[in-house]
Computed example of a mutant assay.
Amino acid sequence: MRRGGPPITTGVLVSGVIAALRGRAIDPAPLVERAGLTGVDPARASADALPGAESMLAELAADAAGDPIFGLRLAEAVDPRDLGLLYFLVRAAPTLRDALSLFERFLPAANSGVEADVTASAGGGAIVDFRFLGAPRARLKHTVEYHLAMAVRVCRSIAAGPVNPTRVTFAHPRLESIDAVEQYFGCPADFDAGSDRIVLARSALDLSLIAADPRLLQVLSGIAEDAAAWSAPSRPTVRRAVGAALRRLLPAGEAKVESVAGALGMTARTLSRRLEQEGTSYSRVLEGLRTELALQYLSDGSFGERSLDQIASALGYHDIAAFSRAFRRWTGHAPSVVRDNPGLARGIVEAGERGRT
């Protein structure tokens, strides 16, 4: 996998879609072309793909096949071993709870079009929320059902006992074959629910795994860490997105990580993890941007006449005292001193730039 390159998937879904179409005597070539999967040979058994194009192919194929549960059938047809490193890594964990933690950590390295957040639920269970990238969520149905069904199938294949969620939810609506979905997952399924989620009970999470292997887990974890590092987004990407969102939100007093994460379409936990992968944190990005903007407002001719309370408000502070304390911490000077000495502001900026080189 290439560091900083475009998002990719393992191609397992593409391969499964092509095999399913050929099994129904449907020529996959026109659909592959419509999905924008340039360079993918439909006759091949596997192919890498951009997440958005991969999802589009699955949706087009479901329509061509006229199959309302196309995604579930794909999950049944795919061999979990074809998922590669991720599958063998989670299989080597001691319990299903440990496997889910590894799944959350390393899923983006296997498929940059899907992210999962695993959080604790009442009674010691877990909620697994999925987020799909690369295509508008409103256009996805069978792709999402495939991924959730595949996650459950993997859990069932590695656990030393039965695994049935207590509930699954989907953000898209469904008017037919709901019973087939509930039969697959073995639990109630809610549609048009606002989230793509699997809920698991503590009894399932505590199950031991059939192929648990501490030594293999250690080896594969090291390989997975390397893969995650190579597949991580280029360093400025998420940080720049956070900065851009903060520039819009700060004047309204919205400096909380939850507000910025929501503006970027992810959870606060996912945003923190993505920033950590880039070697920074939300608080560091926020403080760095506030310092940059404060110095600009205090020294730039077009902002220099602003009163300090206006600047404090533009930076998301509710009062000038909080801004002044923060500014002193950043620069060692009072804001009024820097405002009255533009050369001092430029010197602080230049010193900061030298410190980053």
Rank of each mutant, 00 (worst) to 15 (best):
A204E: 00
G352E: 08
G124T: 11
A252F: 13
T119L: 14
P30T: 12
A212M: 04
I311M: 08
L264A: 08
L271D: 09
L200T: 03
L74S: 06
R197W: 04
R81C: 02
P214Q: 01
A261S: 13
F327T: 10
S121H: 05
M266K: 15
S121T: 15
T237E: 14
R269I: 10
F185K: 13
A110L: 05
R139P: 00
L293A: 06
D190C: 05
P42F: 14
P68K: 14
D300A: 14
F185C: 13
G332H: 05
D48C: 04
G288Q: 03
L207I: 07
A93L: 05
E254C: 11
V181P: 00
Y87A: 08
I26S: 05
I223D: 01
L246D: 07
E33F: 06
E59K: 10
I178A: 11
A45H: 10
L293C: 04
A92D: 08
L175P: 00
M56N: 10
R284F: 02
F70N: 06
L83F: 08
D226L: 14
R329D: 05
L315S: 11
L102Q: 08
T280H: 06
S221L: 05
F103W: 13
P28L: 11
R202L: 00
E353T: 15
G134L: 06
A20S: 15
L31D: 01
I158M: 07
V128D: 09
S208K: 11
G222R: 04
L133A: 07
A326F: 01
R34V: 13
E104T: 14
R197V: 15
P236H: 13
S259T: 12
